[in-house]
Design a protein around this nucleic acid. Structure first.
Length: 679
RNA sequence: GCGCCCGUAGCUCAGUGGAUAGAGCAAUAGACUCCGGAUCUAUGAGCGCAGGUUCGACUCCUGCCGGGCGCACCA
């Protein structure tokens, strides 16, 4: 009748002996019946229980909120629930608060020292910082680099598709936002216990590549030796688009090229393949430098050659929901009816054509086939080849039209497509089409991670030579691949590296220029990655060089600096003392300072921050928590001498710095930001 | 025309219906012969407008205003 604590009653097994450890023993081993990050849930359940016992009321747990109050003096966790109950119970909120508070006290939940009540009717929980600190020290000692991980995703496989840059030009900062968000999401999901497979879709048979091929053939440019191929194509692509404007009939050439690419086995198709592969190599270099890696490259040409759509077509027809139109605007087409779906009903033509009246498949049709493959329900698979060994030591696989059969790819329980917000309509069509066509679960588990694009600030636009109209004061300027307007990802990187390397050189005269550059690169990665994920994805990212280059305040280098400072302290602790300090036995003082408490609390909240960010797909929230963690350490650093503190205090603070260093390392890794012992 | 997103301090951004709306940048004034000043402390200024729901609204609803993006038998 009351919510039960499954995590308390579940028995665990000793991994060495295989013996079942009874609950009581586990309790003694861990010190507490549950992890601190579960405290909020425990408080929710206990509060619900109290309502049931005291007032015979039932309230779902997610309607009971325990949150950190705005002021320190109110407590560590608070709930305004009595305010809401006042009307129902026709009683004064403070009275209700006292009764619930008394009930909660009697349950003695771990980590909580006492409950208090404040006007006009809040219940506050005060943490037992001794117990919490012990618990954090224990967990860090045992878990090390795994500290902060949670298990919500255990046994579930997620496919995350990101990057997906047209292989016809250099990556720009819009692609960088995509890749950084996708990679951080993958890292977060892995830390939340999910099995994650990262796929990068290569549209090697589309118009973008065809345009560059047309440019190669029509403009016959010399491919220069000293210019990167993706940079060269960046300009070439802009040139051919300009030429299309001047000579519209040239566009016919594009369709000829597209047809030849689809047919294959001809010089034009070879050229297209060559262009796409060379560009993909450039893109991979760009992303690898930032610590972004993939599991699988999915080539559109393989989807075409293996006839994924034909297969899906038969599958969908057999399900019986695909409709052949005999009359009307779509006569002769195979369509999905979406008119009854909210959001589509007002469209002029809410039905989506999958097969045109001439018998060819639309892009959405191929996308449906591909999405079904990701879930492992298409009934057809790719062949696979090893593509290369990535710098992080993992193998990057590639789909193939012939080669080895493997059953490890796809077959996901959830699919996340990282694609910008402009394509949300198409992603909705994909999702609802799956549902309508009889793949209800697959549709429900298809998530469009739609982020807003990157645009340029007026200052940065001007710097790039974008024509600025003095009359209208636009606040942002859109990038355009066709016009060749944008900041290339590697140009941004080079500029930041130059900046960070100079800063390192200023501080470390004893190092060689190579070492300066090496550290400069790691700091640049921190600056760029943090800048790309710290904002809410539903806002346009207004890119500005000065902000992206900034290394002060709320930036990646600030986080890295906090870590470096902690490493520096530990490097100065007497070796013997350091070896002698055991986090599991070190004495925790009773008179913890505010700075110490704040730091401990933020370290303790890392698992909860991971879980929340992973489940709500909000990398910005995790970035925010990491920033708070760094700030708490900076404040501790300023106010709390470690090396010169009295012996007992010193040993405790060393233990705390060790804990912070590990937690910060783990948080930075989750964000893909290098943790540097010095910088 | 229809739909989606955004509007919070001079600028860039936080803020699950709850207590005095928070950070960074920029500006100004400070920080001990002490673990690295890529740091810390202090100061000023803000929820686009108008209604509504609620004990309580930056948050939910409606209507405006301003900005961005979508709405194919294109990819």
């Amino acid at each position: 009748m009351f919510p039960s604590y499954n995590w308390i009653q579940v028995h665990t097994y000793d991994i060495i002996t295989g013996r079942c450890i009874p609950f009581e023993e586990e309790y003694r081993m861990e010190g507490n019946a549950y992890h601190f990050y579960e405290l909020e849930q425990v408080l929710r359940d206990l509060t619900g229980q109290s309502l049931n016992e005291l007032y015979d009321l039932t309230m779902p747990g997610d309607e009971i909120n325990w949150e950190t109050p705005p002021q320190l003096e109110f407590g560590d966790l608070s709930t305004p629930l009595p305010l809401r109950l006042a009307k129902v119970l026709r009683r004064a909120p403070v009275e209700i608060a006292r009764e619930i508070s008394a009930y909660l006290s009697s349950q003695k939940p771990a980590y909580v020292k006492e409950f208090t009540v404040t006007a006009p009717g809040y219940i506050n929980a005060w943490l037992d910082m001794q117990v919490l600190t012990r618990s954090v020290f224990d967990e860090i000692t045992v878990d090390k680099e795994k500290y902060g991980e949670v298990k919500v995703g255990k046994g579930k496989k997620i496919v995350i598709e990101h990057t997906n840059i047209n292989p016809n030009k250099a990556a720009h900062i819009g692609h960088l936002r995509n890749a950084c968000l996708g990679d951080t999401l993958a890292r977060l999901k892995r830390r939340a216990g999910y099995e994650v497979e990262v796929q990068n879709y290569i549209d090697d048979t589309g118009t973008a590549v065809a345009d560059v091929v047309v440019a190669m053939q029509e403009l016959a440019p010399e491919v220069p030796e000293n210019v990167r191929f993706d940079y060269f194509c960046w300009d070439l692509y802009a040139k051919i688009n300009q030429k299309y404007e001047d000579e519209p009939e040239l566009k016919d050439k594009r369709f000829e090229v597209l047809q030849l690419i689809e047919e294959g086995n001809n010089p034009t198709a070879e050229l297209a393949k060559n262009v796409a592969e060379k560009i993909v190599e450039c893109h991979l270099d760009t992303m690898w430098r930032l610590g972004i890696y993939y599991n699988l490259l999915n080539w559109e040409s393989d989807i075409v050659h293996l006839g994924f759509w034909n297969h899906a077509f038969e599958l969908l027809k057999s399900k019986g929901h695909l409709i052949y139109e005999e009359e009307g605007d779509n006569a002769g087409c195979w369509v999905v009816r979406l008119g009854h779906v909210p959001g589509f009903e007002n469209l002029e033509s809410p039905d989506k054509v999958l097969v045109r009246s001439n018998g060819t498949a639309t892009y959405t049709a191929k996308d449906i086939a591909y999405q079904l493959w990701k879930f492992g329900v298409l009934g057809k698979d790719f062949f696979y080849d090893r593509y290369c060994l990535q710098p992080n030591g993992t193998v990057l696989w590639s789909t193939s039209s012939e080669g080895t059969k493997m059953d490890r790819f796809g077959r996901a329980s959830q699919v996340i497509n990282v694609i910008d917000q402009r394509q949300s309509y198409l992603q909705d069509v994909l999702r609802f089409s799956l549902i309508e066509l009889g793949f209800e679960q697959e549709g429900e588990n298809s998530i469009h991670f739609g982020y807003e694009v990157v645009a340029l600030s007026p200052k940065t636009a001007q710097e790039l030579g974008v024509p600025i109209d003095e009359d209208d004061e636009k606040s942002v300027y859109a990038m355009s691949g066709r016009k060749g307007i944008g900041v290339k990802a590697d140009d941004l990187m080079e500029r930041i590296i130059e900046h960070t390397t100079a800063e390192v050189a200023k501080r470390h005269a004893e190092m060689s220029p190579e070492e300066h550059r090496k550290l400069g690169l790691d700091i640049a990665i921190g600056a760029v990655r943090y800048y790309m994920v710290r904002f809410n994805i539903s806002s346009v990212l207004v890119f500005d060089f000065d902000e992206a280059l900034s290394m002060q305040g709320n930036t990646g280098p600030y986080l890295q600096y906090a870590y470096a400072r902690s490493a520096n302290i530990l490097g100065r602790v007497d070796r013997e003392i350091l070896d002698d300090i055991d986090l599991r036995t070190v004495a925790v003082p009773e008179d913890l300072t505010e700075e110490e408490k704040k730091l401990i609390r933020l370290i303790a909240e890392l698992p909860a921050a991971t879980e929340k960010a992973a489940e709500t797909l909000q990398s910005s929230a995790f970035a925010e928590h990491t920033y708070k963690l760094a700030t708490a350490f900076m404040n501790f650093y300023e106010t709390s001498p470690v090396l010169t503190a009295p012996p007992a205090r010193m040993r405790f603070r060393v233990a705390l710095v060790i804990s912070f260093k590990q937690a910060m390392n783990n948080a930075l890794t989750t964000l893909g930001i290098p943790a540097l012992p010095r910088m």
